[in-house]
């Protein structure tokens, strides 16, 4: 989100509204044009990282359609809108303005074509699904684990045996600092010493949209099966997330999951709630 840009847009809209109610009458069609432009500016400049242009075109098509539906829902509105357009085109007093518009629009189109052609071409960008639905079950070291019901077997120790739980946290810390921090960073912000060489970049566990909204069984799947376990909408071919079943035991994986939550202060999402 680029809050500043969005604020400016909202402020401009509000100011226009004020002017319109006080001093001049702005007709419905003009209002719709203003909205259209405001939404476009918001999408194009108000969002960070920027949306791909194909997505913006898609959104704007929807917006255009919605505005058209809105206008035609009321036949008076529609008639008055049609009247305005007709007046602009046929009445003599608008002749100069009309000719200017007729001349300027093709020039704008030509300019757009020029900038499109002179921009360096962009490589195909992959939009990937970050949290695809997990499989129903996985095979770990020869045994099947049902992801819908699997629980972290050491989680309950937190209440029943804090000393034993602390040992699992410590073991998780060891696993993390032997294996994970090169990518996910020693502070779990996804900024490890090798993170700059991988694309997509490693997950940031401090971000509320990663482990904070996932179940422990989901993490178990992601950690055990890594990138190769992802479905194709999540671009398994480019993710650097290793399949830790090649290196770690089941207990070590549950322990490192406990450590991720302990270190970041988040709680895992309870079993049974949808992802």
């Amino acid at each position: 989100m680029n809050l500043l840009v969005l604020l400016v847009i909202v402020a401009a809209l509000a100011a226009l509204q004020l002017v319109a109610t006080r001093w001049v009458t702005v007709n419905r069609l003009a209002w719709m044009a203003v909205w259209w432009v405001a939404i476009y500016l918001g999408l194009a400049y108000g969002i960070n990282p920027p949306l791909p242009s194909s997505i913006i075109v898609l959104f704007m098509a929807i917006v255009t359609l919605a505005l058209a539906v809105y206008l035609s829902a009321d036949s008076d509105e529609l008639a008055s809108a049609v009247q305005t357009v007709t007046a602009f085109i046929v009445e003599k007093r608008f002749r100069v303005a009309l000719l200017t518009v007729l001349a300027v629009l093709p020039l704008l189109v030509a300019l757009k074509v020029y900038t499109n052609l002179s921009n360096p071409p962009q490589p195909p960008s992959s939009s990937r699904t970050i949290h695809p639905p997990p499989p129903a079950s996985i095979i770990f070291d020869g045994t099947a684990i049902d992801l819908a019901t699997a629980n972290n077997p050491y989680r309950e120790l937190e209440h029943t045996d804090p000393a034993a739980f602390a040992q699992h946290v410590e073991n998780g810390r060891r696993v993390y600092f032997e294996n994970c921090f090169y990518c996910h960073g020693d502070n779990m912000q996804g900024a490890g010493m090798f993170a700059h060489g991988y694309d997509p970049i490693p997950a940031n566990f401090n971000d509320p949209t990663t482990i904070a909204m996932l179940q422990e069984s989901y993490l178990f799947w992601r950690i055990a099966k890594g990138a190769p376990g992802l479905p194709s909408e999540s671009t398994p071919w480019s993710s650097a997330m290793p399949a830790w079943e090649n290196f770690l035991t089941e207990e070590e994986i549950w322990d490192v999951i406990i450590f991720l939550y302990e270190f970041t202060g988040y709680e895992p999402r309870a079993q049974g709630m949808p992802h």
Partner: peptide, 26 residues
């Protein structure tokens, strides 16, 4: 490829659409 040709092509198409619109309204 030079940009001139595609620019002229698209500008002409835009102009034609405009003229068509104006004609229909008239």
């Amino acid at each position: 490829q030079s940009a001139a040709l595609p620019m002229a092509k698209w500008a002409l198409i835009a102009l034609l659409i405009e003229l068509l619109l104006v004609g229909v309204v008239h």
